[in-house]
Computed example of a mutant assay.
Amino acid sequence: MPEVDPEDAKLITLARSARARTGAPEGAAVRDLDGRTYLAGSVALPSLKLTALQAAVVAAVSSGAEGLEAAVVVSESESVDAGSRAAVADLSADAPVLLADPSGTLR
């Protein structure tokens, strides 16, 4: 298993907590260029569906973030979907998107 940067480990913890708190299939956390963090769970309303990462990016943008340093998704899934990666890339083309399983282990 690769060693995780301490700041990215914090994102994993936050994403895990968002997933656990909401009971959502996914949790996500992002860190903006100022070091602020935003977290979210998946959104599945009749009129609005967002992945956890899309929701975390929305939270960052609505709070004034102009770019992202890193993003984490915690999920049972084996990959991060293209729409979620695109949301991160809209703010920062070079921000890493990490995927961890529900225990917090990077995939």
Rank of each mutant, 00 (worst) to 15 (best):
P46A: 04
A15D: 06
L45S: 07
R36H: 13
A52H: 05
E78W: 08
D5M: 11
T13L: 14
V80P: 00
G64P: 05
D81H: 09
V80H: 00
A86C: 08
S75V: 01
A28R: 02
S84F: 03
V4L: 14
L11W: 09
R85I: 11
R36W: 09
V43W: 00
A29V: 06
V43F: 02
D8Y: 14
G64N: 07
A95K: 04
P2L: 15
V4P: 03
E76W: 08
T13V: 13
L91N: 06
T51R: 05
D81I: 12
S79P: 05
G35T: 04
D34R: 14
A52K: 01
T51I: 02
A95E: 08
L68D: 01
A9R: 15
D94H: 11
P46S: 05
D5T: 11
R21Y: 06
G104K: 02
M1I: 10
P2F: 12
A87E: 04
L106F: 05
K49Y: 12
T37C: 11
A87H: 07
A71M: 09
S77H: 14
A44I: 09
V30Y: 01
V72C: 01
V61K: 15
R19I: 03
D94V: 14
G35N: 08
A20M: 05
A59R: 15
L91S: 10
S42A: 09
A59N: 14
S77F: 07
L68I: 06
A9F: 12
A20V: 08
A82I: 14
M1K: 11
G67S: 02
L91M: 08
M1D: 13
D94Y: 10
A86D: 15
R16E: 00
M1F: 10
G35I: 11
